[in-house]
């Protein structure tokens, strides 16, 4: 724990670690300062200007970029700040496709949260000149889609791609009102170097980046990703007996809240119609459906004839610890051989 600093925000005295931004210090102490472009996992950049505060003796500045200092007196709300923030939000909303009911981010949307807090003047918005929001939706990636009509240009996706994924496949492009997030050559995202880790999709505060088929799960269960040896902790969502979502466990000691394309989007094999659903026994050269009783009695009768080293087991690195324990115990204790191995070497 490094040095603690005492400061006052809106009359409340709080303590924060040296180096913390005013915004983070406030949030950690239960004081809300509206913010949009700041994200706890990423470098702060101060471009949305929503988290403006007044600091005694200084000009208004953004709280996400200002580190706490001893004895600082911060005000998060004043007539001037509120007005600046309000107009700022109104401008943003004017350039946002406000189709909340049909938006996958409805009720998780940061813009909705901000609008609720800041409050907006509908009359002023209607006096403004509304732009045509007619960017085509980019659904070239099989797992997520990009809707630039909803993008608020907070740059969280850009920083995520740079700082978390290290891929840097997206960036701000063009200038002024034409500014948008794009890839090299302004092509569809599928033609970029995007590796579909979905880290930006999971951090996008609005409906600009959403999964292709977003289905709300009925419930979620914390488990472990079944793919590589990293063993990321995932929250798997299910609905109607099918897996419908997979998200990172935020404080996972393994992944730190990140996932890759397979863990996030690759679990639908479980729902595949090609899954085996009954035992199959080869009869007259064909594999035909059979009951568990038939299969188990056939296997136990047959295996009884091969005890010792003429029997072997290939176990699986995809099965659980418990499965493997029982399998090797069976091989050794029942079949009397140490002929067991798995694909550790492959």
């Amino acid at each position: 724990m490094s040095e603690l600093i005492t400061l006052t925000i809106d009359g409340v005295e709080i303590k924060a670690e040296k180096g913390t931004s005013i915004l983070r210090a406030a949030l950690e102490n239960g004081i809300y300062i509206p913010h949009l472009c700041d994200h706890q996992d990423l470098t702060s950049v101060g471009i949305c200007r929503v988290c403006l505060v007044e600091i005694e003796g200084r000009r208004p500045t953004v709280s996400c970029m200002t580190p706490v200092e001893e004895g600082m007196v911060v005000t998060t709300s004043s007539e001037e700040l509120d007005m600046t923030r309000k107009v700022n939000m109104e401008l943003l909303i004017l350039h946002h496709d406000y189709d909340c009911q049909n938006c996958a981010k409805n009720s998780y949307c940061k813009l909705q949260e901000l609008t609720r807090y800041v409050g907006i003047d509908e009359e002023r918005i209607s006096a403004m000149r509304a732009p045509a929001l007619d960017f085509p939706i980019d659904d070239s990636n099989p797992y997520y889609q990009r809707d630039m009509n909803k993008c608020v240009l907070c740059g969280i996706c850009v920083r995520t791609c740079e700082e978390i994924q290290g891929d840097e496949c997206i960036d701000f492009a063009f200038r002024g009102i034409e500014t948008r997030i794009s890839v090299l050559g302004d092509k569809p995202i599928i033609d970029s170097t995007c590796v579909t880790c979905g880290e930006c999709v999971s951090r996008c505060p609005v409906g600009a980046l959403v999964p292709q088929k977003a289905i709300e799960p009925t419930y979620e269960v914390e488990t472990v990703c079944p793919f590589c040896g990293c063993g990321c902790n995932i929250l798997v969502g299910a609905r109607g007996g099918k897996l419908v979502s997979s998200t990172a466990v935020e404080d996972s000691p393994v992944s730190g809240g990140s996932l890759c394309v397979k863990g996030r989007y690759g679990l639908s094999f479980v729902n595949s119609p090609e899954r085996l659903t009954t035992p199959l026994i080869r009869r007259d050269g064909e594999l035909v459906e059979a009951s568990w009783e038939e299969a188990i009695s056939l296997i136990s009768e047959k295996l009884g004839q091969y005890k010792g080293d003429q029997f072997a087991t290939i176990a699986s690195a995809k099965c659980t610890v418990e499965d493997n324990y029982v399998l090797q115990k069976f091989t050794r204790a029942v079949m009397g051989t140490n002929n067991i191995d798995h694909c550790a070497r492959l």
């Binding site: 200007r49 929503v50 700022n88 401008l91 403004m128 740059g155 009102i177 034409e178 500014t179």
Partner: peptide
Amino acid sequence: TKKESCGQCIPCRIGTNQMYDI
């Protein structure tokens, strides 16, 4: 100025454009 705005911050990106439109 609206054309030369870098496009990062909301007030300048949208605000200058809005003022121009008006």
